[in-house]
Design a protein around this nucleic acid. Sequence first.
DNA 1: TCGTTAAGTTCCAATCTAGAACTATCGCGT
DNA 2: ACGCGATAGTTCTAGATTGGAACTTAACGA
Lengths: 190, 190
Amino acid sequence: MKWGELEEEPCSMARTIGVIGDRWTLLILRECFLRTRRFEGFQSSLGITRHLLAERLKKLVRQGVLRRIPYQDSPKRHEYILTQKGLDLYPIMMAIVHWGDIHMVDARGRPLLHEHRKCGKDFHPVMVCSECGEPLLAKEVHTHPGPGARRNSPSAAPENPKAKTEAKAKTEAKAKTKAKTKATTRRRAA
Amino acid sequence: MKWGELEEEPCSMARTIGVIGDRWTLLILRECFLRTRRFEGFQSSLGITRHLLAERLKKLVRQGVLRRIPYQDSPKRHEYILTQKGLDLYPIMMAIVHWGDIHMVDARGRPLLHEHRKCGKDFHPVMVCSECGEPLLAKEVHTHPGPGARRNSPSAAPENPKAKTEAKAKTEAKAKTKAKTKATTRRRAA
DNA sequence: TCGTTAAGTTCCAATCTAGAACTATCGCGT
DNA sequence: ACGCGATAGTTCTAGATTGGAACTTAACGA
């Protein structure tokens, strides 16, 4: 699966991963939330190669997560700031930081604390249900298909995100060994 | 920065990214939360190459996110299940899915809905402050160094988990050599 | 004129990934 | 007994991605 395909998948998680699912992008976004805005700022604080940084920034701009705005004209210079779409990534960042705070700290404790301006206290993020306000537990959540779910036509299901290996079955001569009546799980959509 | 170094960083986010910060790992974890447990299950639903799948599973087991448990003895077979450490990744997964639901859906709507067993309703996850219960906004949060903040720097840079290029030292000696021939192609652009 | 800052580009070598084949074991059908 | 299929990997090669460092462009200040 290539990066491009990821965004076409009928899965919000896959699509999001297509946007932020690589280590440098995530780190760049961390810097954005720590108020870094300029190319050199990202480069020196992350130690990313200039080449990749330019690439990733371009991609984030293309995807509407960052906006590139000029801050001087003389030699055209720009800075990168989070759009609303980018700011909305905040819960993801906090969830990641929190997991690290719980499971990856050494004996000395957390590297960074977070203070909530509203209540003035150091906090940790808690994910709750929008309907009842209770903290979410994986086992208390049941998933079911929504309106955007994949409807695989009963007769024609050639482009399935799964079964990649079969789709490429054009190497007929060599693949024939396996190409027997491969009684795969052929199920029809209800 | 290599993958290994990431986990040494004095930043919970970098450390977490060292564990789950690549596209396949995230996708594998999605499958785990959707109750996939076996090698073939992951392979066929994700279309990941067997080679990478084996590698990633091994890494997740090493890091304590998954546990490898035998489910039959004849030809030794194992399945991979989430440990508590792995289950704790749930908020990250939900945050990622939610962002996708908001920003990456097509006209048909969300591919997957989530029902909270406790209250019986379809919900979306909300991240709140553990202290006051209010939803978290990026601008209402202030970060400050905690006990595990960067060790070596005596001058203790305030709020700065960065500055990791220290060893690189800007290519000091060579940086000056290049200044030689640059004035040759000098012309003004209207 | 030199040196510096800022934001990229370009180039080559080192890694990593995709895709397909191969290995190993056991249980089954004939 | 023999071959087949299912499961879980491992190996191999070619192509894609990354890392590292130099080079470019443009303007400013000493």
